[in-house]
């Protein structure tokens, strides 16, 4: 494995990990709202969040490209006011990974929240706890296993992301080249040996992610 290949591996791993964290502030409140509240337009939000799961990844990538490009609604604002570029940078990779893996987190977290006995939250209120305290001390800890499972799923999805990433971030060596993009690239160039090495690393990473989540599930089952 060359230095460049290791760079690709580390880059992929840390952007995927970062995206799994970045989706928490959006994913957890969304999951909680979907689990505990009813409001007009709820099914619309449910559908929107599920879209990246169902749309072809390149389609999602195209939507993000249009929104976050320098002439896009959001990208334009970021470029003109904050001198921040998203498309063709590592931020674009982060964006693509986050959007594609968010639905997985929201689904798992929503189920986890729904399984928390609402009675426990109610009793916590009678003991004087406000909404935030109830969420942090009761709801979240009890839902934590499901949430972590969701994060691992999201991480695994982010590791393998291709379609949206290549649309939004391109495959700029050293800057936005992820494992999947690099494998594709190497096959294009006829450099099969490189491709297979990167493939090996991908398999190893995916293996560890799934194994980790299995371990977690087993721990959950053992606890009385």
């Amino acid at each position: 494995m060359t230095a460049q290949e290791w760079q690709i591996v580390w880059f992929t791993a840390w952007v995927a990990a970062l995206s799994s964290l970045a989706i928490l502030p959006v994913g957890l409140p969304a999951a909680w709202l979907l689990a505990r509240r009813d409001w007009p337009g709820k099914s619309l939000v449910e559908t929107l969040i599920s879209l990246p799961l169902v749309l072809p990844p390149v389609a999602t990538g195209l939507i993000l490209l249009k929104l976050f490009g320098r002439r896009g609604a959001i990208g334009g604002f970021l470029h003109d006011r904050l001198d921040l570029d998203v498309v063709f940078t590592w931020r674009g990779v982060l964006l693509a990974l986050s959007v594609m893996s968010l639905p997985l987190l929201v689904r798992s977290a929503r189920v986890a929240f729904e399984e928390v006995d609402p009675r426990l939250e109610q009793i916590a209120r009678t003991l004087g706890a406000g909404n935030l305290r109830v969420f942090c001390t009761i709801t979240l800890p009890l839902a934590s296993r499901g949430i972590v499972g969701g994060m691992i799923l999201a991480f695994a999805r982010a590791l393998g992301e291709f379609g949206a990433t290549i649309m939004v971030a391109g495959n700029i060596p050293g800057k936005t080249s992820t494992l999947s993009l690099a494998i594709y690239q190497n096959v294009q160039l006829g450099q099969d040996a490189h491709a297979f090495r990167l493939l090996g690393v991908s398999v190893a990473l995916a293996f560890m992610a799934v194994w980790g989540s299995e371990l977690l599930l087993r721990k959950a089952r053992r606890k009385p």
């Binding site: 006995d117 009675r119 426990l120 109610q122 009793i123 916590a124 209120r125 009678t126 003991l127 004087g128 706890a129 406000g130 001390t137 009761i138 800890p141 009890l142």
Partner: peptide, 29 residues
């Protein structure tokens, strides 16, 4: 709001917080 009513509640299913120890349950309120 419930939290300001100062009314204690022992429900039928007790609703003890399973992820906290006895001491932590007691101290919660």
């Amino acid at each position: 709001a419930t939290r300001h009513r100062g009314i204690g509640y022992v429900p039928q299913d007790l609703a003890l917080f399973p992820h906290l120890s006895v001491r932590e349950n007691l101290r919660y309120g």
